[in-house]
Amino acid sequence: MSFFLMPAPVASRRQFLAHSGLVLSGAAVALLAGKDALAATSGHARSGDVVILNTALSAELEAIAAYQLGAESNLLQKPVLELALTFQGHHKQHAEVLASTIKKLGGKPALAKEKYNFPVAQLKSQTDVLKFAAQLEQGAVSAYLGAVPLFGNRELAKAAASILGDEAMHWAVLRQALGESPVVPSAFMS
């Protein structure tokens, strides 16, 4: 698999570890700043925003569970496994930020389902797992893209766009690992 000819993801994993603790972006910090700060910035965070954040949170929680399934499948070789765990770590951070923001806005964060119906029977090889993950990440890009224009609050829209960027990078790296061409499929995401 072309992935193994490609040292970059492993290097980036190392870099990620070296920098962890510093990974909160400006957007995430803005989110964590609290309700007053959110209210003071452009646009009120309406109850509709909480609904958007909760749908996003549900999708992030599913992604965390999906990567867990992949990690425990024994189908992933070490560098791929490390990559999966790195991406899962990002999703965990997204989920934490989303949940805390929902709470700050007076909402009740969605919880992870007890059971997810992943297509386990179809995951028989590392390639299957990577394809499954790539599909989830592609979907996540679309989902955030479809959420950005709906926010009443501009800071929340920005934070969603920040997460979108991260999901898009996951998707590209997974496509690279799968040897898909072109690695970046188009100039625009939809």
């Binding site: 749908t55 999708a59 989830l136 479809g146």
Partner: peptide
């Protein structure tokens, strides 16, 4: 439909 796959599947419930 790939855009919908963040939250939907044909045969099972997700988000």
């Amino acid at each position: 439909y790939k855009r919908c796959l963040a939250c939907h599947a044909l045969a099972y419930d997700r988000v």
